[in-house]
Structures are given as C-alpha cells and as structure tokens.
Design a binder for these strands. Structure first.
Lengths: 191, 191
DNA sequence: ACACCTTGTAAAGTTTTTTTCCAAAAAAGA
DNA sequence: TCTTTTTTGGAAAAAAACTTTACAAGGTGT
C-alpha cells in the first residue's frame, strides 16, 4: 500500500483504501470538478472541503417519513441523512400512542394530516417505512399531494405515475443476494 | 396491459406487472429451469410451486444478528428472511437490559458469547446492525470465529479477508442516490 | 533546466445487461 | 388433419455500463 505524504494523498493511495483503481477515483472526483493538483495529488483538507461544498451546493430537499415502527425509528435516529442535504420535516403514523411524540427534533403527526402537510410545506420526498399492505395506499396519498420521489422500504412494487421516482430497498432481497453469491462461491470451490 | 387468461400468465403479462420486458422475464426464469409451456405461458400455480421449490432447494444458511437496536429489531421482526432459506439462530447485544429477552423465537445473547456460539453452531452468516464505531471490531470477531458472509448495515467499509463476502447496505447512500436522480431530472426538465 | 510525479480526460477495451430473433411446442379453428 | 396463432427457451446481436489504458499538461524538487 502506498504511503501518504504530508497533507496530500494520491488517487492511487485513496484507491487502495477504497478497494478501487486509481483511475476510477480520479474519474469519479473529476466528474464534479478539479480538486487535485498534478504531481502532488489531492490535499486532504481541500478535498474534504470540496466534497462538502459539492454536497451542500445540491439543493435542499425536504421530506417526510411515514411509518414510525422499528425501521422508521432507526432512520429517524440515523444522522447520515442530513449529510445528503435532506431534511425530515415530520414523521407520520396512525398509532395514537405515537402521535405527538418527538424523535430528536422530528415530530410525529397523525397520518390523516399527511396530504395537508405535504401540500402546505411543499414536501418533495417521502420515506415509506409502513407495513407492506398499507404501502400502496400511503404512496398514492403522498403522490396525490405532490411528492416527487419515494424511498420505499416495504416489499411491494409501488405503482406510481412515471414522473415520480421510486427507489426500492428490500432487505430480504439483499440477504438473498448475499446467500446466492455465497452458494455460488462454495459450489465453484468444490467443482 | 395484456389480460390474464384462466390459470396461465404469459411472460409479457408478468413483465408488465413487474415493469420489465417480456424477454427479461423469460431469461430470468429460464436460468433456473423450464417452467413454461410454449403457446400457453406459465401456469400460475405451477410457477409458484417451481419458484418455491428452487428457493427451498437452496441449502439452508444459519446466521446471527448482531446489534439489537431499532434496525436490528426491525430485521428480527421481518418475515422476508425466512423465505430465503435463512435462519437467524440468535441475536447478540452488549446491553444487559436486552440480553436474555426474546424477539419472536430469537433469543438475545451477550455479545461476549458470540465467538463461541458461531463456532459451536457452525454459523456462516452475520448481520451487522451495530453502531459504526463498533462495526469493524465485531466483524473481526465474527470472521475469526468462522463466518463466511456479512450483511453490513453500518456505514463503514469493513476490511475482511477476501474469502469473506461482504454485502454493504447504506441507507444514507440510497437516499442520496434518489435525491441525485431527482435533481438530475428536474434540472434537465428546465433546460 | 531537467527529471520525475500525478492529475484530468479521451479513447479503447471489457464486461454486463438488454433486446432481437427464431425454431420448436402447444392450442384453436378450419 | 392441416394451418394459423400464440408463446416459450435460448442463441446471437446490440446496447449500455463500467474499467482500464494512455498521455498531454501541470506541478515539484534538485
């Protein structure tokens, strides 16, 4: 592994830490601008600033999280979301025991207020962490109220107008995929 | 959208429900065997049986879940895992308040017993739902004890021997990706 | 001034994914 | 029975995505 010199780091060095090739690192960084200096590499501090600058230059999106079960609560607690210039304006649930509570700085509202809230606040993104059987109905509500993107954790194929972007996350499929590759690997090792 | 005829469904019909092309559906199904009949399509009941047969013909993997926070609890409650012929043999945590409890049929044990349990039970897969700062240490333990695959939810690049398969799930990155495409779409719509 | 690094980017190469195409199989109508 | 229609499975072609190679241009140190 190449060693880091004072304050600077080369694409080769970065690559070895990330498990990529030097060319990939350069290409990916270059996509957003010129952050390095030829013959030297990337100055760590500068690179960090530049990346943060690119990320925060992206316009802010405001979103709601719908369904405060275990998974929803986990996401509310997860700090990584703010990094993406994403702001959870409110969470929604149908359970009266949860409504009115606050997770961090996010308030839990009654799902009946969802449409009104989305319209009033100009919400563009919804994170769906509701049970599978309610997912389509909730998505329909959110889309009708004006949401443009959905991050869907329910194991259901949502049907939405094509101008709405859905990103599907199925934890079961991730696991199956891992197991599949494990089996492939052990099988080919035997044969 | 094509209509379904009694008991049978064509690849084109399946495809339209899944948002794929007919050819893709046929190719993907054919990968595991011949389930359809030319001129007719796939008999729904038969296809379902065949898919279940393929899935359960895959050898069973046993795994442990490490870190019973909100996310861990959500996964323990999620029934989709059993479908993949995957069995969570036990969960682990370091919090004495959680140790000894039972989620569904899964018992929560002390993380100190992790290595011993993995070896004793021949566990092959670990699901990591621990905080980022403990992820590498826990992964090291699991790998040393014999785990061959890791499903990692901590936003950390695990470093493991290359014979160990790691599947990384970063919910923050999923969200960023969604936002990125949303921005791309709205920008190109303007210009 | 010269030798040596290392970036950014274009071009080439590779891999993966998707689509197209068609022989063969099944059903339905003549 | 024979022909037409439908639809599969799989081969071959096409397209797309991803990686690597290659190198001019920009910088550093002697």
């Amino acid at each position: 592994m190449p060693k880091a010199s004072s304050g600077s780091i080369s694409s080769e060095n970065l690559a070895s830490h990330l498990g990529l090739s030097d060319a990939s690192v350069r290409r990916d960084l270059a996509y957003f601008g010129k952050f390095g200096t030829p013959g030297v590499g990337y100055k760590a501090e500068e690179l960090k600033e530049s990346i943060l600058a690119v990320m925060s230059s992206q316009c802010l999106y405001r979103g709601v999280l719908i369904g405060v079960g275990n998974l929803g609560a986990a996401l509310l607690a997860y700090k990584g979301l703010k990094l993406a210039n994403f702001d959870i304006a409110a969470a929604f649930d149908r359970d009266p025991k949860k409504i009115g509570k606050t997770y961090g700085s996010v308030k839990i509202l009654d799902v009946k207020e969802l449409a009104h809230f989305i319209q009033q606040e100009g919400i563009e993104v919804a994170i769906l962490t509701v049970p599978a059987q309610s997912a389509q109905a909730v998505a329909d509500m959110a889309v009708a109220a004006g949401v443009k993107g959905i991050l869907n954790f329910a194991p259901v194929n949502l049907s939405v107008p094509e101008e709405v972007l859905v990103s599907q996350i199925d934890l079961g499929i991730e696991l199956e995929s891992l197991l599949y590759f494990l089996r492939e690997r052990t099988h080919s090792a035997v044969s």
